[in-house]
């Protein structure tokens, strides 16, 4: 009996080892250890053994059975691992092929630049104000110290709707509307469309965008104006950017200035972008004219303030190296998808 068991064991082990896949392995298991298997048959035949032999053979048979089961499991895992390895090697894909994308749209480049400017000023405590595009002559001109027949009206060729209603030529009327309604301290920027009767070319458009800024409070100085705007251009164009303020004239500010920044292309040495000057004009600004404050019911002896106006297209053209303003309004997807 013992010999028989040992025989079965070595025969089964030999077969396990040669099994090529889990299916074959299972068949071999059944062959030896299934209900009608060889080892099972031996165990069933144990009744014929003597009382003394039975426990000895029984123990041996169980030992062999356990051993074989362990070996089967081991062999099975090995076979499974091999199979998986094979499958994985067959499932190789070309990971350099392009990804499948869920196409997102994009915001217009003018919005992207506007958002950046808004972010910078909101960080300095400025809120966002708005106003009508079709505006009273009073808000667009008179309240801003530009009476009828003032020569400054010539430089802003105005679209009229009626005698006293215009398409705003600047975002400055929003200043007046805000000052009429709000008591200082005031810190706002006011972005929006403005209109001037210029024919369309690479640098002109009858519709374009400005961002107006206004600060009114006690003790606001021209030094504050310089500091605030320098901080703005350094945030927008980088820490190394230098600003230069040149005297200028606007009817609604006094003193008035234009701000140039060191050329973003050459850093100030002079190049084609800055026409050799090293400086690029970016905005107009000044201390709010006392008459404008008075027109809005704010006492210029108590309060002072500064204002500035930024041309959005100009900033965006510089930032993205765009040489034709018309591209912004053509909305060709080949253009829009670049930003």
């Amino acid at each position: 009996m013992k010999e028989k068991l040992e025989q079965i064991k070595s025969a089964a082990e030999a077969e396990f080892k040669s099994a090529a896949d889990p299916g074959a392995l299972e068949n071999i298991r059944i062959k030896y250890m299934g209900k009608k298997g060889e080892l099972t048959a031996v165990l069933k035949g144990m009744g014929k053994l003597s009382k003394e032999e039975r426990p000895v053979v029984g123990a041996l048979a169980n030992e062999i059975r356990q051993k074989l089961e362990g070996e089967i499991e081991e062999r099975k895992s090995a076979l499974m691992a091999e199979l998986e390895k094979k499958r994985l090697s067959e499932e190789v894909i070309d990971v350099t092929m392009p990804g499948r994308r869920r196409a997102e749209g994009k915001l217009h480049p003018l919005t992207q630049v506007m958002d950046e400017i808004k972010r910078i000023f909101m960080g300095m405590g400025f809120s966002i104000a708005e106003g009508p595009e079709v505006e009273y002559d009073y808000y667009n001109f008179e309240a801003l110290n530009i009476p009828k027949n003032h020569p400054a009206r010539d430089t802003q060729d105005t679209f009229y709707i009626e005698d006293n209603i215009v398409l705003r030529t600047q975002t400055s009327p929003i200043q007046v509307r805000v000052m009429e309604k709000t008591r200082p301290p005031i810190r706002i920027i006011a972005p929006g469309k403005v209109y001037r009767s210029d024919t369309v070319d690479a640098t002109h458009s009858p519709v374009f965008h400005q961002i107006e800024g206004l600060v009114v409070d006690k003790d606001v100085t021209m030094a504050d104006l310089k500091g605030t705007l320098e901080l703005f251009v350094r945030s927008l164009y980088g820490e190394k950017t230098r600003a230069r303020f040149r005297p200028h004239h606007f009817p609604f500010t006094e003193p008035s200035a234009e701000m140039d920044i060191s050329c973003w292309s050459c850093g100030g040495k002079g190049c084609g972008v800055c026409k050799g000057e090293g400086w690029i004009e970016v905005l107009g600004c000044g201390m709010v004219h006392p008459k404008v404050l008075e027109n809005c019911g704010i006492d210029p002896e108590v309060y002072s303030g500064f204002a500035f106006g930024i041309g959005l297209e100009r900033i965006a053209m510089g930032k993205y190296d765009i040489n034709d303003l018309r591209l912004f309004f053509e909305n060709d997807l080949r253009f829009l998808s670049q930003f």
Partner: peptide
């Protein structure tokens, strides 16, 4: 002219 930053009452943007 020197440069300075806004002082006075703070405002929330």
């Amino acid at each position: 002219i020197p440069t300075s930053l806004l002082r006075g009452e703070t405002t929330a943007g």
